[in-house]
Computed example of a mutant assay.
Amino acid sequence: MNERAPAEMVDLERRAAPQQKRSQARIAQIVAATKRLLERGEVDSITTTTVAAEANVPVSSVYRYFPNIYSIHRTILEEFKLETDRIVLTVLEDPEAQDWQQSLSGVIFGLRELVASNPSYGAVFHLTLMTHELRAVREAWNLRLADVLATRWRQGKDGFHGGDPAIVARMTVEIYCSAEILIFEVRDRPEEAEAYFTEALMALQRYLAAYLK
Protein backbone atom coordinates (compact mmCIF):
# COMPACT_ATOMS: atom_id res chain seq x y z
CA MET A 1 0.00 0.00 0.00
CA ASN A 2 1.43 3.38 -0.97
CA GLU A 3 1.81 6.05 1.70
CA ARG A 4 0.68 8.90 -0.53
CA ALA A 5 -1.42 9.69 -3.55
CA PRO A 6 0.64 9.38 -6.75
CA ALA A 7 0.17 13.06 -7.61
CA GLU A 8 1.64 14.35 -4.36
CA MET A 9 5.22 15.55 -4.20
CA VAL A 10 7.35 13.83 -1.58
CA ASP A 11 10.69 14.50 0.03
CA LEU A 12 13.24 11.88 -1.01
CA GLU A 13 16.14 13.32 0.95
CA ARG A 14 17.30 11.29 3.91
CA ARG A 15 17.66 13.11 7.21
CA ALA A 16 21.14 14.48 7.95
CA ALA A 17 23.62 11.60 8.12
CA PRO A 18 24.45 10.88 11.78
CA GLN A 19 28.02 10.56 12.98
CA GLN A 20 27.36 8.16 15.85
CA LYS A 21 28.08 4.52 15.06
CA ARG A 22 24.86 3.46 16.78
CA SER A 23 22.78 5.69 14.51
CA GLN A 24 24.66 4.54 11.41
CA ALA A 25 24.01 0.95 12.43
CA ARG A 26 20.30 1.72 12.84
CA ILE A 27 20.14 3.19 9.33
CA ALA A 28 21.86 0.09 7.93
CA GLN A 29 19.36 -2.05 9.85
CA ILE A 30 16.40 -0.19 8.33
CA VAL A 31 17.82 -0.35 4.80
CA ALA A 32 18.60 -4.06 5.17
CA ALA A 33 15.04 -4.74 6.33
CA THR A 34 13.64 -2.89 3.32
CA LYS A 35 15.87 -4.93 1.02
CA ARG A 36 14.55 -8.17 2.52
CA LEU A 37 10.96 -7.06 1.93
CA LEU A 38 11.80 -6.11 -1.66
CA GLU A 39 13.51 -9.45 -2.21
CA ARG A 40 10.41 -11.28 -0.97
CA GLY A 41 8.37 -9.55 -3.65
CA GLU A 42 6.36 -7.34 -1.29
CA VAL A 43 7.05 -4.22 -3.35
CA ASP A 44 3.53 -2.77 -3.40
CA SER A 45 2.82 -3.39 0.28
CA ILE A 46 6.01 -1.98 1.80
CA THR A 47 5.46 0.95 4.17
CA THR A 48 7.47 2.49 6.97
CA THR A 49 5.36 0.39 9.34
CA THR A 50 6.23 -2.91 7.65
CA VAL A 51 9.87 -1.87 7.46
CA ALA A 52 9.90 -1.08 11.18
CA ALA A 53 8.37 -4.47 11.95
CA GLU A 54 10.89 -6.27 9.73
CA ALA A 55 13.79 -4.34 11.28
CA ASN A 56 12.36 -4.85 14.78
CA VAL A 57 12.55 -1.14 15.56
CA PRO A 58 9.90 1.47 16.44
CA VAL A 59 8.31 3.31 13.52
CA SER A 60 9.60 6.51 15.08
CA SER A 61 13.14 5.24 14.50
CA VAL A 62 12.44 4.92 10.79
CA TYR A 63 11.07 8.48 10.62
CA ARG A 64 14.06 9.76 12.54
CA TYR A 65 16.24 8.99 9.53
CA PHE A 66 13.82 8.77 6.59
CA PRO A 67 10.81 11.03 5.90
CA ASN A 68 8.96 8.26 4.02
CA ILE A 69 9.36 4.87 2.36
CA TYR A 70 10.41 6.46 -0.91
CA SER A 71 13.44 7.96 0.78
CA ILE A 72 14.56 4.46 1.79
CA HIS A 73 13.99 3.24 -1.76
CA ARG A 74 16.12 6.09 -3.03
CA THR A 75 18.92 5.13 -0.63
CA ILE A 76 18.91 1.61 -2.10
CA LEU A 77 18.76 3.02 -5.62
CA GLU A 78 21.77 5.24 -4.91
CA GLU A 79 23.65 2.19 -3.64
CA PHE A 80 22.76 0.36 -6.85
CA LYS A 81 23.97 3.33 -8.88
CA LEU A 82 27.34 3.36 -7.13
CA GLU A 83 27.83 -0.35 -7.76
CA THR A 84 26.81 0.09 -11.40
CA ASP A 85 29.24 2.99 -11.87
CA ARG A 86 32.03 0.87 -10.42
CA ILE A 87 31.34 -1.99 -12.84
CA VAL A 88 31.03 0.26 -15.89
CA LEU A 89 34.19 2.26 -15.19
CA THR A 90 36.21 -0.84 -14.30
CA VAL A 91 35.30 -2.53 -17.58
CA LEU A 92 35.73 0.54 -19.78
CA GLU A 93 39.14 1.33 -18.30
CA ASP A 94 40.39 -2.25 -18.54
CA PRO A 95 43.62 -2.14 -20.60
CA GLU A 96 43.17 -5.83 -21.45
CA ALA A 97 39.90 -5.26 -23.32
CA GLN A 98 40.55 -5.96 -27.00
CA ASP A 99 37.47 -4.40 -28.61
CA TRP A 100 34.14 -2.73 -27.90
CA GLN A 101 32.21 -6.00 -28.08
CA GLN A 102 34.31 -7.44 -25.29
CA SER A 103 33.76 -4.29 -23.22
CA LEU A 104 30.02 -4.34 -23.90
CA SER A 105 29.73 -7.97 -22.86
CA GLY A 106 31.77 -7.26 -19.74
CA VAL A 107 29.49 -4.42 -18.71
CA ILE A 108 26.23 -6.26 -19.44
CA PHE A 109 27.29 -9.49 -17.75
CA GLY A 110 28.65 -7.52 -14.79
CA LEU A 111 25.40 -5.63 -14.33
CA ARG A 112 23.31 -8.79 -14.74
CA GLU A 113 25.35 -10.54 -12.06
CA LEU A 114 25.00 -7.52 -9.77
CA VAL A 115 21.19 -7.51 -10.03
CA ALA A 116 20.93 -11.30 -9.84
CA SER A 117 22.92 -11.37 -6.60
CA ASN A 118 21.01 -8.39 -5.15
CA PRO A 119 17.30 -8.88 -5.98
CA SER A 120 16.35 -5.72 -4.10
CA TYR A 121 18.20 -3.68 -6.75
CA GLY A 122 15.97 -5.05 -9.50
CA ALA A 123 12.88 -4.39 -7.38
CA VAL A 124 13.75 -0.78 -6.58
CA PHE A 125 14.77 -0.20 -10.19
CA HIS A 126 11.34 -1.44 -11.24
CA LEU A 127 9.78 1.01 -8.77
CA THR A 128 11.24 3.87 -10.79
CA LEU A 129 8.54 3.14 -13.37
CA MET A 130 5.75 3.72 -10.87
CA THR A 131 7.02 6.58 -8.72
CA HIS A 132 7.49 10.00 -10.27
CA GLU A 133 10.27 11.08 -7.92
CA LEU A 134 12.20 7.83 -8.24
CA ARG A 135 11.78 8.00 -12.00
CA ALA A 136 13.47 11.41 -11.89
CA VAL A 137 16.39 9.88 -9.98
CA ARG A 138 16.74 7.13 -12.59
CA GLU A 139 16.50 9.67 -15.41
CA ALA A 140 19.36 11.70 -13.93
CA TRP A 141 21.40 8.53 -13.54
CA ASN A 142 20.71 7.44 -17.13
CA LEU A 143 21.82 10.83 -18.41
CA ARG A 144 25.03 10.67 -16.40
CA LEU A 145 25.84 7.15 -17.58
CA ALA A 146 25.07 8.13 -21.17
CA ASP A 147 27.41 11.10 -20.79
CA VAL A 148 30.23 8.74 -19.75
CA LEU A 149 29.77 6.78 -22.97
CA ALA A 150 29.29 9.88 -25.13
CA THR A 151 32.48 11.47 -23.77
CA ARG A 152 34.37 8.27 -24.51
CA TRP A 153 33.08 8.16 -28.07
CA ARG A 154 33.72 11.86 -28.73
CA GLN A 155 37.35 11.06 -27.97
CA GLY A 156 37.30 8.54 -30.80
CA LYS A 157 37.45 5.49 -28.57
CA ASP A 158 35.92 2.20 -29.74
CA GLY A 159 36.24 3.51 -33.30
CA PHE A 160 33.05 5.56 -33.02
CA HIS A 161 31.84 6.91 -36.36
CA GLY A 162 28.77 7.95 -38.32
CA GLY A 163 26.47 9.24 -35.61
CA ASP A 164 25.88 11.61 -32.71
CA PRO A 165 27.71 10.21 -29.65
CA ALA A 166 25.16 11.69 -27.23
CA ILE A 167 22.16 10.17 -29.00
CA VAL A 168 23.78 6.77 -29.50
CA ALA A 169 24.91 6.70 -25.86
CA ARG A 170 21.43 7.60 -24.62
CA MET A 171 19.82 4.90 -26.75
CA THR A 172 22.35 2.36 -25.48
CA VAL A 173 21.49 3.10 -21.86
CA GLU A 174 17.74 3.07 -22.52
CA ILE A 175 17.91 -0.31 -24.29
CA TYR A 176 19.74 -1.79 -21.32
CA CYS A 177 17.32 -0.28 -18.77
CA SER A 178 14.26 -1.51 -20.66
CA ALA A 179 15.72 -5.01 -20.80
CA GLU A 180 16.53 -5.00 -17.08
CA ILE A 181 12.94 -4.09 -16.25
CA LEU A 182 11.59 -6.87 -18.49
CA ILE A 183 13.95 -9.37 -16.89
CA PHE A 184 12.76 -8.34 -13.42
CA GLU A 185 9.13 -8.87 -14.41
CA VAL A 186 9.83 -12.51 -15.36
CA ARG A 187 12.33 -13.17 -12.55
CA ASP A 188 10.30 -16.18 -11.40
CA ARG A 189 10.78 -17.79 -14.83
CA PRO A 190 14.57 -18.18 -15.17
CA GLU A 191 14.56 -19.52 -18.73
CA GLU A 192 12.46 -16.61 -19.98
CA ALA A 193 14.60 -14.12 -18.06
CA GLU A 194 17.72 -15.60 -19.63
CA ALA A 195 16.14 -15.35 -23.07
CA TYR A 196 15.43 -11.64 -22.53
CA PHE A 197 19.01 -11.12 -21.41
CA THR A 198 20.39 -12.85 -24.50
CA GLU A 199 18.12 -10.82 -26.77
CA ALA A 200 19.12 -7.57 -25.04
CA LEU A 201 22.81 -8.30 -25.52
CA MET A 202 22.23 -9.18 -29.17
CA ALA A 203 20.16 -6.03 -29.73
CA LEU A 204 22.88 -3.84 -28.24
CA GLN A 205 25.60 -5.54 -30.27
CA ARG A 206 23.69 -5.08 -33.52
CA TYR A 207 22.76 -1.49 -32.72
CA LEU A 208 26.29 -0.45 -31.77
CA ALA A 209 27.87 -2.31 -34.69
CA ALA A 210 26.65 0.54 -36.90
CA TYR A 211 28.72 3.06 -34.93
CA LEU A 212 31.67 1.22 -33.38
CA LYS A 213 34.48 -0.80 -34.88
Rank of each mutant, 00 (worst) to 15 (best):
V115A: 11
E93D: 14
I69S: 11
V57Y: 05
R170M: 13
G106E: 13
A209F: 03
A166G: 07
E79C: 06
E54A: 05
R138G: 11
V59C: 06
E54K: 12
F184H: 15
R138K: 11
R154L: 08
Y63A: 01
T48P: 06
S71D: 08
L111S: 12
S103F: 06
D44H: 14
A28F: 02
E13A: 15
R144S: 08
Y196S: 04
F160A: 05
A193W: 05
L89D: 10
G41Q: 12
F66A: 09
S45L: 11
Y63F: 04
R112H: 13
A140L: 11
R138M: 14
A17G: 06
E113Y: 10
T50H: 00
V148S: 09
S60V: 15
Y207A: 03
E133G: 07
L77H: 01
V31S: 02
M9V: 09
F184L: 03
A17S: 04
P190K: 02
T84W: 02
A25S: 12
Q102N: 06
G106H: 10
E8Y: 08
V173W: 01
T198R: 15
N56M: 14
A209Y: 04
V31W: 01
E139I: 01
L37C: 08
S120R: 08
Q102C: 06
E96S: 13
V107A: 03
D147E: 14
F184S: 07
V59K: 08
V88S: 08
R15C: 01
Y211G: 01
R206H: 09
E78M: 14
K81D: 11
L111Y: 03
G41H: 07
L111T: 08
R206K: 07
A32R: 13
L134M: 03
I175F: 10
M1H: 11
E191A: 15
D11T: 09
S45G: 14
L92D: 05
I76L: 13
E113S: 13
A123Q: 08
E113P: 01
A28K: 14
S178H: 12
R189N: 12
P67C: 00
N142H: 10
A209H: 07
L37N: 10
V173F: 02
E8A: 11
V10L: 13
T49G: 15
L143F: 05
H126L: 12
T90C: 02
Y121I: 00
S120E: 12
V148P: 00
Y63Q: 02
T50L: 03
E180N: 08
G122Q: 05
E79P: 02
L208G: 00
S60C: 04
I167K: 10
E3H: 09
Q98N: 07
R26P: 07
D158T: 02
R36S: 12
T172K: 07
P95G: 09
L37I: 06
E83Q: 14
L127R: 10
V91Q: 00
E113I: 10
R64Y: 14
A116L: 11
A140C: 09
L12Y: 12
P67Q: 04
E191L: 13
N2T: 02
G162H: 09
Y207W: 04
L82D: 07
N118K: 15
A136R: 15
R144N: 01
Y196D: 03
G156I: 02
P190Y: 04
E191D: 13
E133W: 04
V62S: 01
E54D: 11
G163C: 03
R4L: 03
R112G: 13
W153M: 01
P6G: 05
E191F: 10
R138P: 00
V91T: 08
Y70N: 07
R26Y: 05
L149G: 05
F66D: 00
